[in-house]
Design a protein around this nucleic acid. Structure first.
Lengths: 336, 336
DNA sequence: AGTTGCTATGTGAGCGCTAACACTACCCCA
DNA sequence: TGGGGTAGTGTTAGCGCTCACATAGCAACT
């Protein structure tokens, strides 16, 4: 344990230069003779020197770490996003520190932010698709670069978001185009912007088509709640098309329909959202909407780096359009 | 940006003490008068002071950060584990920094380790269920506390592992107990310890029961590969029981069996592994084996903290037993 | 020859904290 | 009454790095 590795001065001594020259080599400073640079690099390699991020962070006031705050990184969406963020950040030389949070209320978020700030993270990405998160975010110190993913479109905070509305509209329209008179919706939980956006898109598409607007079935992202909603829907003969707010809800719905002997897609069509890797292997393979998590991650990191470098926070925002993935769970409604 | 927050000396000045006393209060040092402690706490609150982790890390040589190295945090297992690790670490006052890695080969892992070390993480958890990871780990500096999760049982590295063998044995035995003459296995990819362990457990159970050992169907964790294997199995009339190395494989198998009109569990029984939240909503609900990720995370962090505090690395290891979750995908084999 | 301007390098200070030690009271017991 | 502990606090010296500035060398002008 106790053995501290070599420091910059050790490298400097070996290379016969000052520690400052070593620092310049490390940071790619231009005014260093090629020969000197090589000598320093050789010394670094020989000693197995590794720059001390803590010391650098101390003097610059910023570490090369980006803090991410998320709620449930077990869900497919957040997990994918987190992985993509980490990948993108690594390419830019940043590490990612996760701050999971059980609840997305003020206190939990503030605590997580606090933890990140005490490590002097360079910036924070909040995967906070929940209304209650918004207020906590406004209280944040203004001097910390911040990007929100799938957050509140109303708040003046840099935001990257999947176009939930467009995705839901596409899903609904796809079902209407197949000949269905209207589309039922099993939604995500209240308080989530994702839920709200998908509800809006669904509603818009129905309104635009002059279709009847059926009552909403509120779910909570889980297959369990999808199953419960599916048990209702399966009993209603007039239901021929269902759009669920995510694929797991769809799985639950499919299961309920199957139990009631309602055939998909012959009697009822179903469309999900997320395109989890398994969606193609549901019974039947699920038509769904795929958000591009990589694009979201790239945009987020980009927005964050801009702030970090320029110091200027803007009310920038970027929207990523999802795409419809057509599989076998949609067909024309049965003839009466 | 530029505004640095208050430092320890500012708090000290306001409280009318020395900065060292503030440090003592912060670190829970015993010899501080109650009255002084309160005054310091008040000053901290008034200034909104936040200790600077970088400075602390610089002087102590260790930050309150645990580095995690994982491959694909999108898969359910790793994602759950990561979340659980983060949760547990947070309870102990540690942050978690993720180092995703595309491939688990020497170079990628070494690079990730390098990144973590330059941030002077207090310890590293490697979720490295792959053979190729082992060698890279042995080259690591010996002075960094390290714990491997689901790693190589043969290597002298502290290891926490789910008892894959016991889980697989239980799954296989469960099928044999239901009356099946033998059990087929769709495995995970080669080179993964998880795969190997589950294969071993399956084999052991069959051998112990004196059952015939059918050929292995190698998969790769994905529903897609499960589907491909399922297409084979569905054509073979003698197949009545299948154990898959994870739930997603099972999903693919179920889908293939369904397409071929083979009824589950009436004609064929299926058991999975992982107990993903959706498993209860597969068609039919999947009997599976549930590893306790929270327990694994707790054990890992515990092992790591022991090393961090004592400085002594031991070839410690802990094994977490999984439990069988019985649902509807298993029944007695059909009468001939 | 003197001034300017550039490049390549060195020097010194200090980021905010903890560890080690120094110091002051005060109490206890011989 | 004095020596030795002990609780409470202050002082000092870095940890390893970057920043701002100083310096030295050399080319290119006046």
């Amino acid at each position: 344990m106790a053995v501290r590795g070599p420091a910059m001065t050790d490298v400097a001594r070996l290379a016969g230069v000052s520690h400052q020259t070593v620092s310049r080599v490390l940071n790619g400073h231009p005014n260093v003779r090629e020969q000197t640079r090589l000598r320093v690099r050789a010394a670094i390699a020989e000693l197995g020197y590794r720059p001390n991020g803590a010391a650098r962070a101390l003097v610059t006031g910023r570490s090369q770490v980006i803090g991410v705050i998320a709620q449930n990184t077990t869900l497919y969406g957040p997990a994918s996003l987190l992985a993509a963020l980490e990948q993108t950040a690594a390419e830019e030389g940043f590490a990612v520190s996760v701050g999971s949070v059980r609840d997305l209320d003020h206190r939990s978020i503030s605590a997580a932010v606090e933890r990140h700030l005490s490590h002097r993270v360079a910036g924070i990405v909040v995967i906070a698709p929940v209304e209650s998160a918004g207020e906590a975010l406004e209280r944040l110190p203004k001097d910390v670069p911040l990007v929100t993913v799938d957050g509140d479109p109303q708040r003046p905070v840099p935001l990257v978001t999947v176009d939930q509305v467009a995705g839901a509209r596409a899903a609904t329209q796809h079902l209407l185009d197949a000949g269905h008179r209207t589309v039922w919706h099993v939604s995500g939980p209240a308080g989530w912007f994702d839920s709200a956006g998908r509800i809006d898109g669904w509603r818009e598409a129905l309104l635009a088509a002059g279709a009847e607007l059926p009552p909403l079935l509120p779910g909570d992202w889980s297959a369990a709640s999808g199953y419960r909603c599916g048990q209702m829907l399966a009993r209603m003969p007039e239901v021929t098309a269902i759009f669920t707010a995510n694929d797991h809800l769809a799985l639950g719905v499919l299961r309920a329909l199957h139990e009631f002997g309602r055939r998909v897609p012959a009697e009822i069509s179903v469309v999900g959202f997320d395109d989890v890797p398994e969606a193609a292997y549901f019974i039947p393979p699920l038509t769904t909407v795929r958000p591009d998590f990589d694009a979201v991650a790239r945009a987020s990191i980009q927005l964050l780096l801009t702030q970090i470098e320029s110091g200027a926070a803007g009310a920038l925002r970027q929207t990523i359009a999802p795409t419809l993935v057509s599989r076998d769970s949609v067909a024309a409604p049965p003839r009466r």
